[in-house]
């Protein structure tokens, strides 16, 4: 933690999918240079929260402030400008399949800078070195393995040296060695460039390896928020279930169960 400046601030965020409330009164602040891991099971609302942080969804209530600016109060041009300071590595990579890896990484440079081609190529090679993909720039995204895709997506996310980096499930679906390498990479990025990093994951090992603080979501609310030690010591049953990979015993309502079977509810 390198200071007390707040990079990301969420206040009283509510979100709905149709009629279903998926986030309720989320309050979260991420300090500058901090790695915040958002953790939770499937359906806990963590992807929805991420989409709100990215400004892809508009909150039903509450506000999201990035680098001190309220997303809902910005004009579309101001949002475009703000996005130059954000990098996002999506879960599936979201590399453009019609472009090579190098062209993918170069795209933000082409769109947002007036550098000459040669300089852009050098920057792209530098970023490929950072993510250990040197020499793979000419490949098409379909020719990459899962781990390579995630690393290429990370390279594209950091090509403009953003102040905020968001990673969606950076290690999901990878073998332990590759997944651990990606964790190291995220730590290096923070140490070298002082980025504020938000990682959404359900991978416990990875979360406890990289996080400065962890935010545990469950059913749309934050059930625990704190340092690794605080989360480990959390008295909340749901957190302990998540940490110890225990399934939760649903209370059995025989009548409701029968009604469900008969298709009456």
């Amino acid at each position: 933690m390198t200071g007390e400046a707040i990079s990301i601030e969420v206040r009283g965020l509510d979100a709905y999918w149709g009629d279903r409330k998926v986030l309720a009164g989320i309050d979260l602040a991420v300090r500058q240079g901090e790695i915040m891991v958002i953790m939770g099971g499937s359906g806990s609302g963590k992807s929805t929260l991420l989409n709100h942080l990215l400004g892809l969804l508009h909150p039903a209530a509450g506000s999201v402030r990035l680098l001190g600016r309220d997303l809902s109060a910005l004009s579309s041009q101001e949002i475009l400008d703000l996005r130059r300071h954000m990098g996002v590595a999506f879960q599936g990579g979201a590399l453009f399949s019609s472009l090579t890896v190098a062209e993918n990484i170069m795209l933000p440079l082409e769109e947002h800078t007036r550098l000459d081609r040669k300089t852009m190529e050098i920057i792209v090679r530098l970023k490929l070195e950072v993510v250990n993909l040197a020499g793979f720039g000419h490949l098409m995204p379909s020719e990459l393995s899962g781990g390579m895709t995630k690393r290429a997506a990370l390279a594209r996310a950091i090509v403009l040296d953003p102040r905020l980096l968001f990673c969606d499930e950076p290690s999901a679906g990878l073998d332990p060695v590759v997944s651990s390498a990606i964790d190291d990479l995220i730590l290096r990025l923070r140490d070298a460039m002082g980025m504020t990093i938000v990682v959404v994951t359900h991978d416990l090992d990875s979360a406890f390896k990289i996080a400065d603080r962890i935010c545990v979501l469950d059913e749309g609310t934050i059930v625990a928020l704190g340092t690794r030690a605080e989360i480990r010591a959390s008295p909340v049953a749901r957190v302990q279930n998540l940490l110890n990979r225990r399934t939760e015993e649903a209370t059995l309502d025989t009548d409701a169960y029968l009604r469900r079977l008969l298709g009456e509810s």
């Binding site: 400004g55 879960q91 599936g92 590399l95 453009f96 795209l107 933000p108």
Partner: peptide
């Protein structure tokens, strides 16, 4: 097909968050 594939691969979200309309 192209727009649809890009949508399900989150490529359109990727464009948006890159500040590319």
């Amino acid at each position: 097909a192209r727009v649809g594939t890009m949508k399900i691969n989150q490529e359109i979200d990727a464009l948006t968050v890159m500040g590319i309309d």
